[in-house]
Design a protein around this nucleic acid. Structure first.
Lengths: 148, 148
DNA sequence: CTCACTGCAAAGGTTTTGCAGTGGG
DNA sequence: CCCACTGCAAAACCTTTGCAGTGAG
């Protein structure tokens, strides 16, 4: 399921953005990293193969990509942003123990919520989107963390 | 529905925390402010009546209160935290236009979600809590913002 | 060739920290 | 009284910005 550089270039092109190694590197990391990385983590990963991409540049790239709807910022309870590729509508599973965030897809749930809010209107508020933050514990291979 | 200083003092005492003017001031603001204030806003409001409470102190107080489960941090997509008093389970309505965050209570929704996830298990994940972030537009008196 | 983009370094804004001093219990 | 808590100021941290220089189209 790895996203290729070719696909990435096309995405950039479709948005009318210049195709630069910096942008490809950032998108490559975000598209191919499971856990929603922070800017810092993205920088770390990119530096391994492109040691001289500047911090400021990466932030600028991230900004541009968010503007162009190629990626999205994810809220966390630390004060630092995490980034997420934009895919199908999905929700987030937050680990209460580690800093893990995983995606959760559930069309049936979305349908149920849509149906629910079609009946139950919120006064003075027009819903555009609903995102669930599901907090809990990962039980398996994915995050067998040691206890603190 | 104003929360009195007496009630606040009791909450602090029950947690074994010392009752100080600084802590009372912070809790007073958080309990009696509708919109979930940022640290900065809390500081501003407190300074009106207590001009010499230090910034660092307020951060320390906020930290302590979060640790003791008297208040909670709320995620925003700016990089700054907002604070919320801990009340009944509730969700958040985020304005797509302004920086408004409002609480949304809906027991029926909670029941529906609980029922849903009793049937539909998420593999390798044990749910502890679900919080909805509902994005949309406020239509009324509360936030009749001008267009950008 | 041109201008959108990058690198660099400095600045900005929020939060944290260290430490001496104070006041709550 | 004593130690948890505060005030203050410096530092830490993440992110943004300005500007000269570069390379994508």
């Amino acid at each position: 399921m790895k996203v290729s550089n070719k696909q990435i270039s096309e995405k950039l092109q479709r948005k009318g953005l210049r195709i630069t190694p910096q942008r490809i590197a950032v998108l490559e990391v975000i598209y191919n990293t499971k856990d929603h990385p922070s800017a810092d983590k993205i920088i770390g990963l990119i530096r391994k193969t492109h040691p001289n991409i500047a911090t400021g540049t990466i932030y600028k790239v991230l900004d541009t990509l968010v503007d162009q709807n190629l990626i999205r910022k994810v809220n966390t309870d630390k004060n630092l942003m995490r980034y997420d590729s934009i895919k199908e509508k999905h929700h987030h599973l937050f680990s209460l123990e580690a800093d893990t965030i995983e995606d959760y897809y559930d069309k049936e749930l979305d349908k149920m919520l849509a149906k629910y809010f079609r009946k139950r209107k919120i006064p003075n508020f027009k819903i555009k989107d609903i995102e669930l933050q599901i907090y809990g514990k990962f039980k398996s291979k994915n995050s067998n963390k040691k206890k603190c």
